[in-house]
Computed example of a mutant assay.
Amino acid sequence: MSVIEVKHVTKDYGYGRGIFDVSFEIAEGEVFGFLGPNGAGKTTTIRHLMGFSKAQEGELYINGKDCWKSADIIKRDVGYLPGEMAFPKGMTGNNFIQFMAEERQIIDMSRTDYLKELFELDTSMEIKEMSLGSRRKLALVTAFMHDPKVLILDEPTSGLDPIMQERFIQFILAEKKKGKTILLSSHIFSEVDATCDRIAIIKEGEVVSTIEAAKLKNSTNKAFKIEFATNKDYQQFLSLTQFKIPVERPDQNQVKLNLTDETMQNLFIELSNVNINFISEIKFTLEDYFMDFYDRKKSVAAGEENLEHAIH
């Protein structure tokens, strides 16, 4: 059963800005990654799900409720963490937590106390005096304090230090085990890779790919770095190979190339005619998959940079 449904949603702000015919569904108990850089359309989609904006075309539902018509119910029931945080003026962290508890009719504050301890949050000071990281922790606590079954998280670890980012990932994995349905919007590959069951990539307001995380991790695509014994071997391989070479390092007699399981045998046949120092597999990552859709030139440049770091 789909808990979150986005059906052919368009909101055109002009000049190529907005979202265009965006569709995806999130099943009960699924963690769904929404991956893209800032400005790609992640937040716009989420604002429509939370009923802050009305779509020009298409429909959005959470638990069968229309996100625009039932916005008040959705805002109360869903655990929502906005990308851009705004808090009432003049409140301490304690004041804001109490305000949210009253809005949600929470009497037992034990879960809230647990979350404050987990994320090491001091709620005694005024919110305006808090650091960005502390304000993000406050938003996290209030998003999770009512133990919602559905969570919509927009750039949840923005402003958190690496220790808290890892703590958040472990917390999300624990929530996942409880059967929570989670939409996690992010541009951080490690965060999405560690938590999500499926991943949608959004580019310039359009969903360009949706993939199961397990299939990506078990991909038959492989990348290899090869160093040849001499420049003569290196040049001979380049002149004879049938493979496309995305990264060449002639000063180091090295190449990087991408293969599938089906083409690996052909590579080793070609390598039998030259001398090599080593061949090593480079793990295919979510970032590699993402960059295929976003900027192949940048992907190649990143490959060269990674190769140079590996060399030195």
Score class of each variant (00 low, 15 high):
Tyr13Arg: 07
Ile26Ala: 09
Ala27Arg: 13
Glu30Lys: 07
Gly33Ala: 08
Leu49Thr: 03
Asn63Met: 06
Lys65Asp: 02
Asp66Asn: 15
Cys67Val: 11
Lys75Thr: 12
Gly90Phe: 11
Gly93Gln: 01
Ala101Tyr: 03
Glu102Pro: 02
Arg111Asn: 03
Met125Tyr: 10
Ile127Glu: 12
Ser134Phe: 02
Val141Phe: 08
Val150His: 01
Ile152Asn: 03
Glu155Gln: 10
Pro156Glu: 05
Thr157Asp: 06
Leu160His: 10
Pro162Arg: 15
Ile163Arg: 10
Met164Trp: 03
Phe171Ala: 02
Lys177His: 06
Lys177Asn: 05
Thr181Ala: 00
Val192Gln: 00
Thr195Asn: 08
Arg198Lys: 14
Gly205Ile: 01
Val207Cys: 08
Thr210Ala: 12
Glu212Val: 11
Asn221Ser: 15
Lys222Leu: 08
Phe228Ala: 00
Asn231Val: 06
Gln235Phe: 02
Gln236Trp: 01
Gln242Lys: 15
Arg249Thr: 00
Asp251Ser: 15
Gln252Glu: 14
Gln252Tyr: 13
Val255Gly: 09
Leu257Cys: 14
Phe268Glu: 01
Val274Arg: 06
Ile282Gln: 14
Asp288Phe: 02
Tyr294Val: 15
Asp295Gly: 08
Arg296Thr: 14
Ala302Gln: 13
Glu304Cys: 05
Ile311Pro: 02
His312Lys: 15
